[in-house]
């Protein structure tokens, strides 16, 4: 079976700085894959390349949506990438602060709905039906992440852990087949991290999607991911199952330094 995301020899240069060099990465259907590495290794840059925020300098990125033909996403704009079925969250939370929780999720339904200016002004039956569908769908997403009690609160009023979950709900509302999570557990306490662990697995199973996540919390990474890729200084230094990666001398060196005698 084709991998849903197939990245080949991806390279990203910023002027003279090579942030990513020849990265190969595959995510298979239904898999949870983790991308780890020390700070500044290029993990978020990799995400930004896939989601169209940066245009990579070389390499290929191909997606295989379950019900559509394969597609090269190298030169697509971020909104087109999202429309093709990739959705992401952000490392530093990027919610629409002055909108309500429900509206945050409704915004993400934008690319799956069609009503325009005239529809908005005249509010015909079609627009109303679509609006209602949007509200219901968004509410279901909020229920999935356990935020249905906050629908009318402003996003900025939510506690930190809830903001992270809202980002996940928002990304899910675009109906992706691949969800990219950028440090979903950052700043969470151990109990919240455990809940997140369960949430990610549940989402994968219920929504039938694949997940690629960047994470620093090793306990979380080891427990939920099937495969792990390790980046360091823009290069892929290891890949494999959690057990393989944990035993890899290169990984130990990258995380703990040269002098560590394993």
């Amino acid at each position: 079976m084709q991998p849903v995301l197939d990245v080949k020899k991806l390279t990203m240069d910023f002027g003279g700085l090579r942030a990513l060099e020849g990265i190969d990465l595959q995510v298979n259907r239904g898999e949870i894959v983790a991308l780890i590495g020390p700070n500044g290794a290029g993990k978020t840059t990799f995400f930004n390349c896939i989601t169209g925020i940066y245009e990579p300098s070389g390499g290929d990125m191909i997606i295989n949506p379950p019900d559509k033909p394969a597609k090269r996403i190298n030169k697509l704009k971020p909104n087109t990438v999202t429309e093709s079925g990739l959705a992401r969250t952000f490392q530093n939370i990027r919610l629409f602060q002055k909108m309500t929780v429900l509206e945050n999720v409704m915004v993400a339904r934008h690319c799956r709905t069609r009503s325009g200016i005239l529809g908005a002004i005249f509010r015909g039956t079609k627009t109303c039906a679509e609006e209602q569908e949007m509200v219901d769908f968004s509410y279901r997403m909020l229920e999935k992440v356990g935020l249905e009690g906050y629908v009318n609160d402003l996003a900025q009023e939510l506690p930190y852990g809830a903001q992270r979950r809202l980002e996940i709900a928002r990304a899910m509302a675009t109906e992706p087949f691949l969800l990219l999570l950028d440090e979903p557990a950052a700043g969470m306490n151990p109990r919240e991290t455990r809940e997140l662990d369960a949430l990610i697995t549940r989402i994968r199973d219920e929504e039938n999607l694949s997940i690629l996540l960047i994470e620093h919390d090793m306990k979380l990474v080891m427990s939920i991911s099937q495969r792990i890729y390790v980046l360091d200084y823009g290069k892929m230094i290891a890949r494999g199952t959690p057990a393989e990666v944990a035993a890899d001398p290169n990984v130990v060196k990258a995380y703990l330094g040269e002098t560590f005698d394993a």
Binding site: T51, N79, E83, L95, F96, M99, V107, A108, C111
Partner: peptide, 15 residues
Amino acid sequence: IALREDEVACQAMGI
């Protein structure tokens, strides 16, 4: 409003 609040996130949500 999403555009006003956060341009990057707004695009990433498919707008």
